[in-house]
Amino acid sequence: MAHVSARTQSGAATSKAVAPLLDVQCLSKVYKTGKRALNGIDMIIDRPQVVAIIGSSGAGKSTFIRCINRLVEPTSGRILLNGKDIVALDRKDLRSARRRIGMIFQEYNLVERLTVMQNVLSGRLGYVSLFASLRYRFPAEDIRAAFELLDRVGLAGYQDRRADALSGGQRQRVGIARALMQRPDLLLLDEPTASLDPKTSRQIMRLVGELVAERKTPAIINIHDVALAKSHADRIVGLSEGALVFDDTPDQLTDAALARIYGDEDWTLTSNNEAAGA
């Protein structure tokens, strides 16, 4: 089976002395309502790559990504980031761990009434005192880095615009800049393109791919759009009803694999479109 071979492949990488960047072990989440959202997920990321997580709505994609920085508390399992178990951390250490994990959201989640610059700098909040953050006094290097990032995501000159005056694509670029301000070891993207039009979606995905390569930071992306996942990800993970049912390179994502992830449906059309698009 495809995902078994992927496991062994990454298992070979772990046998080196260095701990993998991210090692998720037997992660489960049961909500108070009794809904079992995640059921023993194992996953290893050992090199900078774009990992796309696909699956139907309610398959546990969003829960999985939110468990990694504990915006959702996992019920059981371990999440090792650079060898340190995030699940076991207390509030204070969790905050330090979160500083090293950038997150990008479907609805951008910018603080709407603040300016672009204030939003980007909020990525550094974990590093400054409360008083300094109240007055937005950040170190000069942070400010230079913020300007540089704005330039990199294509928003040079936008620093004093208010977030609620931007278009969806621009807001997501600010969201990306905010996450990268954290100088993260890992990027989490929760449906980053679901609120954007197809063209902007592609631009954003391309930007993410380039940034992952430039900064050598792995990224985990929840995504609905299979075609977009296939064209921009280095690796695809399929979730179905809280279980991992596929983990391999995009070219292994056959119709049979799609049926395993999403259930039976005529997948030829999607694949053909994809073939034409790629």
Binding site: M117, Q118, Y136, I143, R144, A146, F147, D151, D160
Partner: peptide, 11 residues
């Protein structure tokens, strides 16, 4: 880099 200022004050 030179084009990027390192001073900025919040509005």
């Amino acid at each position: 880099r030179a084009a990027h200022p390192d001073a900025w004050r919040p509005p």
